[in-house]
Design a protein around this nucleic acid. Structure first.
Length: 558
RNA sequence: UGGGCCGUCGACUAAUGGUAGGUCAAGUGCCUUUGGAGCACUUUGUCUAGGUUCGAAUCCUAGCGGCCCAGCCA
């Protein structure tokens, strides 16, 4: 597959050509903050960071941006590493911004000595007031012109823990009148008497993102530091620190974040769904997290193909969920074995089929892959078919079973519906049919055709299964679009999960292991959930098959 | 209203002064023991107005529209 061109790649090509970084190899990094689980949006960044470095013979580090001890946890570190590997990437160096706390501290002292940084005693509130607004310049802090000696002393004492949280900060001395608010003396260090997941209680001052990120890149000699668009305004500051310090000139390049319809990719909001138990956890198959879509049955290959196809640019847009689903179907179509499963069973009795007879019919495991082989499926007098596959009063263009109509049971026989049995509520509970013994395997010797083929399972041999049918998580294309006074949870789709506890699946599925994926013929792709117990499989619907009949019905209905 | 960025089919993305192309979606037909898959075909696009040029999606100017920024979050 040819590498898709994009503007980031173009920059690298040019930098290699002009030897912007001498003979050094391309170095990138993927820098997650360990405060949540990775999601499909991160997959785009991961593929870009690792993919580009790989293409140019460079390397990629995994670096945890762990500068805020109050939000970060080891659990997230572990899940992030697992996610990157699941996607199929292996990092060169494994680092943490906290590895650089000593160096960062030394550099801060250098900036103080160069009169480029100062300790400010203003409160957070006062700093905000001094910052000015979008249209008005800020005002200098009264502490802006302290002597180098006093700054050094105060900063040292901040580090030693002599001051309470929030009482002082270290700020870069840049320009309070800059039209770029990031340049109005940004905070470099804040006092936080908090236990850090890696450095414990060694520090009570922690660097801010802007002071830590670029320097971390520089230490690792990152040549191309990709991040999302909202950091464009930070680039001047990123460059300013590197320049003042005279260190390796990493360059920041911003690209557009991934957005998907009917999907939320905000760690804060995903965390809320988890904390308020609106989902079963970070790996709920409805979640756009890597662990969620993995449990749902998505493959890493499908994700990578998707990311490769959507491109990288600086345009803020939203992709249709259908695009993602296409790549999942495309991948699963090639690799998922076909099986027969009936989600909503309707009993079919073949009146002229011998009582007690069982035949083994041969079924193809994957028409897209001859090497997947064949299997035998038991056939008998009493079967289950899908409720949707029988209509007492069939509408136009409905080709499936209905009174007097002949259809093919996949790999079985032609059957013709003769009568129905209803319960007291008037619902059809049983369909009686006859079969043509000459059509075994699904072909008639006289060459007559049927318009439809339906799937089935033998009632006596069927395995009971739970099937979790997932739908989009939100009802609105943009889940953030809410009425006044509402929040995004109001857009949660109440039908995003339907649990079907009495599905019937063919016997070969009894021992399917967690994580294995199948196509349930005519229905969709399904993945065995870890909740499965021996003899009681649980399946998650990954994605439905494209459904032409559903489209016809929808068009007729609307 | 200051600054930064961005406007190409319905969606995403190419074309880097020289034929506006690809993928998804939608539609039509073929094929089919999955109304699946596959194959073929089709529809729809350069935000607007000026300018430079033999030639502009591309360069310039001015509008218009969208996104981001006033955390001691990242």
């Amino acid at each position: 597959m040819p590498a898709p061109s994009n503007f980031v790649r173009d920059i690298i090509v040019e930098d290699v050509r002009t030897k912007k970084f001498g003979d050094a190899a391309i170095q990138t990094r993927f820098p997650p903050e360990p405060n949540g689980y990775l999601h499909i949006g991160h997959a785009k960044a991961i593929c870009l960071d690792f993919g580009l470095a790989d293409e140019f013979g460079g390397k990629t580090n995994l670096r945890f941006d762990d500068t805020n001890p109050e939000k970060e946890e080891q659990e997230y570190v572990d899940s992030i590493m697992e996610g990157v590997r699941w996607l199929g990437f292996e990092w060169d160096g494994l680092y943490y911004a906290s590895d650089y706390f000593d160096q960062l501290y030394q550099w801060a002292i250098k900036l103080i000595k160069d009169a480029k940084a100062y300790v400010d005693d203003l409160s957070a509130d006062e700093i905000r007031k001094h910052r000015g607004t979008l249209t008005e310049p800020g005002k200098d802090s009264p502490f802006r012109n302290r002597s180098v000696e006093e700054n050094l002393d105060l900063f040292e004492r901040m580090r030693k823990g002599e001051f309470p949280d929030g009482s002082r900060v270290l700020r870069a001395k840049i320009d309070m009148a800059s039209p770029n608010l990031n340049m109005r003396d940004p905070v470099m260090y804040r006092i936080l008497h908090a236990e850090h997941h890696r450095t414990g209680d060694k520090w009570c001052i922690y660097p801010m993102y802007d002071y830590a990120h670029g320097q971390s890149d520089s230490i690792e000699r990152v040549t191309h530091s990709m991040c999302t668009l909202e950091f464009e305004d930070h680039r001047p500051l990123y460059n300013w620190f590197i320049q003042q310090l005279g260190i390796f000139p990493s360059q920041q390049i911003e690209f557009d974040r991934l957005s998907l319809t009917y999907t939320l990719l905000s760690k804060r909001k995903l965390l809320k769904l988890v904390q308020e138990k609106l989902v079963s956890g970070w790996d709920d198959p409805r979640m756009p997290t890597l662990s969620g879509i993995r449990r749902r049955g998505y493959t890493p290959e499908a994700i990578r193909n998707f990311v490769g196809a959507i491109g990288v640019s600086k345009t803020n847009g939203t992709l249709e969920l259908a695009m993602l689903e296409h790549f999942v179907r495309e991948d699963l179509n090639k690799r998922a074995p076909r099986v027969m499963a009936v989600l909503r069973p309707l009993k079919v009795v073949i009146d002229n089929y011998p009582d007690g007879q069982v035949e083994e019919v041969e079924a193809v495991n994957n028409p897209e892959d001859e090497s997947a082989g064949r299997r035998n499926v038991p056939f008998s007098k009493v079967l289950y078919i899908e409720q949707d596959d029988f209509r007492e009063d069939p509408p136009k263009q409905y080709y499936r079973l209905s009174p007097g109509r002949e259809v093919r049971l996949r790999y079985g026989y032609f059957i013709t519906a003769k009568s129905v049995v209803k319960n007291d509520a008037g619902e059809i509970v049983e369909v009686h049919c006859t079969y043509d013994p000459a059509t075994r395997g699904g072909n008639s010797p006289d060459g007559r055709k049927v318009k439809s083929t339906i799937h089935w399972v033998s009632a006596a041999h069927a395995v009971d299964a739970e099937v979790r049918v997932y739908d989009r998580m939100f009802t609105k294309e943009d889940p953030n679009h809410v009425e006044e006074g509402q929040e995004f949870t109001a857009n949660l789709n109440p039908q995003s999960l339907e649990v079907i506890s009495e599905a019937k699946v063919e016997p070969s599925l009894a021992a399917a292991s967690a994580g294995s994926r199948f196509q349930f013929e005519r229905l969709g792709y399904f993945c065995v959930d870890p909740d499965s117990k021996p003899g009681q499989p649980v399946f998650n619907r990954t994605v439905a098959l494209k459904d032409a009949w559903a489209r016809i019905e929808k068009r007729a209905g609307s």
